[in-house]
Write a protein that binds this DNA or RNA. Structure first.
Lengths: 285, 285
DNA sequence: AGACTCAACGAAAAGAATTTACACCGGACC
DNA sequence: GGTCCGGTGTAAATTCTTTTCGTTGAGTCT
């Protein structure tokens, strides 16, 4: 547990004098680093002895150890802050190439991080079950999402699953109607409102297929139309960066699905990957 | 500049006694945090006065400030380390789904970060120049790299550039031979040894096209065959995660290229994106 | 060679900061 | 009313840090 939250937790049980110190530290943790124990005591209108008591109360042996620990923790926070880099800022014409690239990278990093952080593992697990139990896996996406669908299909094919990317709306609907075996349909749409993808999932569902949506919009028609919905977390202020950041997040979800499916049949999968890998190498040499 | 590198830089000009301190600190920076100035002096078989001199020599006013600064810096490093999570560890059968997903996400985050960090902006700029000046942009990749090529082609098409993904080796070679206008050929290959992609770039180059390679292998035939080579930085111990992490890194480079090209003609690009966006929406409604 | 200079160094004094010891206050409980 | 006890500050003791100053030894000039 972090020092800050430890202080927070202890604050209520602290006597007045120590409580004042806690308040000062919570409001501005860097005072501990900048000021000596005497200065801090003065600032809180109390004695140095009480500051030492405060240190003990929150689990440190004295002022120096608290100082070090807090310095380390502040460093961590600073790192996390700076790692987020140029934040929320739109990529603009004025940016140098370096700036633009670093802004974009920040957005992509953030997208992966948040997508994974907010991933609902129950939904993921259920989706993986569905894919694992299916004889036929139908994938559909339009525009940038099409490549994502193709990417997943390619991965699944390489581990011996029957995955098909449907090229156009007609084929998509046709295939989703003709279901001879347990089928799962996966629709990709960033905005979640692409009409073709929505129809595809609806049709597939109407004919008994399991349905999975991959989108960024939690309250979208696509998400509602699917049995399970997996969400990307993308911060974008306009469509400009969207096609870049959103597909990275979608691919991250694809990887999560793939890993899950692969894990179900670990040795088979590894074996299959090895064989396709070897086969491709053989072609090459 | 970081403290550690400051010490590194100063180390050579330091007298023996201070140099011992520098060595101790470099080897294990946390000694400064854990030990008092006396203990550190003893450990380095020197006097406390010399430790103070050392602090001054590297730009601090005394031991305490160095301590705080170093604690903060170590905190940052720790944060970076922990943020990267389960590191270098292979995704294995024993992992829970959560563990596997978090390992994968770590690898992907790291890939984007390092790819951008080690990106050679001169090469990027030159590549962008080449694409910007070309009338025809030919792209080629096989397997997972194919989707990357398609992704870039799609983006370039949407801003009005003539980008073509070549479907097979024959078409690739044929197209690269028939060059009526300034042409640039971009080849994608993670390992950098895919023979078809190599032939494609070689043929295109032989017929006067500019060539760009996107690969992870710095010392690969593909990198050598191209005018400009952009490198992905991917840490992977086996092919298992490779197809996932490497394509994320490749897409990051694709985005860098696209941003660069888009910036050259900012208003046109934004306009084009807006119009294609509107057109697609019109189709939908 | 001898005297000088000067950087390097440590011992120890001086100065701060931190910790401990102790005494005081005020309320709760016999 | 007396006693106990948590909460508190003062001041002494301790520990840590900084400064001062003298010693050493290597290099240099006479």
């Amino acid at each position: 547990m972090s020092i800050q939250s430890t202080i927070e937790a202890a604050a209520s049980t602290l006597p007045p004098s120590l409580s004042r110190i806690a308040k000062a530290v919570r409001e501005n943790p860097s005072v501990v680093i900048d000021k000596t124990i005497n200065e801090l005591a003065d600032e809180c209108r109390t004695s140095v002895a009480s500051v030492v008591r405060f240190c003990r109360a929150i689990g440190f042996s004295g002022y120096a150890p608290l100082r070090m620990a807090l310095a380390t923790e502040l460093g961590k926070e600073a790192a996390q802050f700076s790692a987020r880099g140029a934040f929320g800022s739109e990529i603009s014409d004025d940016d140098t190439l370096q700036e633009a690239v670093s802004k974009l990278a920040s957005l992509e990093l953030l997208a992966i991080e948040e997508t994974v952080a907010r991933l609902d593992f129950d939904v993921l697990e259920a989706s993986i079950d569905m894919i694992d139990g299916a004889e036929r896996i139908l994938l559909y996406g339009i525009g940038a999402s099409q490549f994502v669908a193709e990417d997943l299909a390619h991965k699944l094919l390489r581990v011996g699953r029957n995955a098909h990317v449907l090229a156009d709306p007609h084929e998509a609907v046709a295939a989703s109607v003709l279901q001879t075996a347990p089928t799962v349909a996966i629709g990709f749409s960033h905005a979640g409102s692409t009409i073709e993808t929505l129809r595809f999932l609806e049709t597939a569902r109407a004919h008994g297929a399991g349905t999975i949506a991959v989108t960024s919009a939690k309250d979208s028609p696509l998400a509602r139309a699917a049995d399970h919905a997996l969400f990307t977390e993308v911060r974008e202020s306009s469509f400009r960066a969207g096609a870049m950041v959103s597909r990275i997040a979608q691919l991250t979800l694809v990887d999560c699905l793939f890993i899950g499916v692969a894990k179900r049949r670990f040795s088979e999968t590894v074996d299959a990957l090895q064989r396709t890998h070897d086969a491709m190498r053989a072609l090459r040499d």
